[in-house]
Amino acid sequence: MAMLNFLKRGLKKTKDGFFGRAISMIKGGITAEKLEDIQELLLLSDVGPETSEYIIEKMRKEKGDPVEVLRNTLIDLLGIDERLKFSQIPPTVYTLVGVNGSGKTTTAGKLAWRFKRDGKRVILAAADTFRAAAIEQLKEWGKRAGVPVIAHQMGADVGAVAYDAVKHAISNGIDLVIIDTAGRLHTKDNLMRELEKIHKVISKLSSNQPTETLLVLDATIGQNAIQQARIFDKSVGLTGIVLTKLDGTAKGGMILSIKKELGIPVKLIGIGESVEDLRDFDTFKFVDALLE
């Protein structure tokens, strides 16, 4: 909580700087009409009808500066920033999961680049053996990051790929294994079971693994994200979210509902197509951008 209060204080300072639109809207007291404008802003940012109503209700009820109430509500919803964890006993294993086209392979490449830069021994595992050329795509990222890629041929058993990668990491003193999985719609039970199998294989080799199971979410998608997070979490237990494609004009407001309903934090954001365009999530900046 201490951290949270610190953040709130930090926000106070920027009162007049950031939050252009939202703040100028509610300066000088709130009216029903102004609240409707705020709700519009939230809805257009994909916050969704339920969560935006929750926020508006807070603004209606809570006393004090409405600007503060709005900010604090958003910050409370998102909570303290959380970072990627490392396993005490190497290797650390990250699996990237998500629906088709969310940006898993790109994120895997960027993650590999980042930790390689930080001096870690990293390998990538190509556990998407379904999508045409997914393996080639990951290999290209491996080249860019200067990181080896463990891969089988297209159509191969993905459990075996994961097994080989983690096994290789254990016997070669690798610090970090990043597993790229195939895109799958959360509604396809058989594909979700395949994902569970990958996890079973990994945890058999090395308990408490994977260290992180990250859902890669496209910031341009809407309320279906909540359902995705719910089902993936139920199936493989998510530890965090990577919110990609935030370099566009989409705001990614659905992460508020995901945190509120499922308690899953965003840990990373993708903001471009080059290797370094992956950042730690920053509640403070996110709220800024949301209300801009």
Partner: peptide, 12 residues
């Protein structure tokens, strides 16, 4: 268009 698209995609 991705059927899962949110509010902003109409701008695109």
């Amino acid at each position: 268009l991705d059927s899962m698209a949110g509010q902003d995609v109409v701008n695109a």
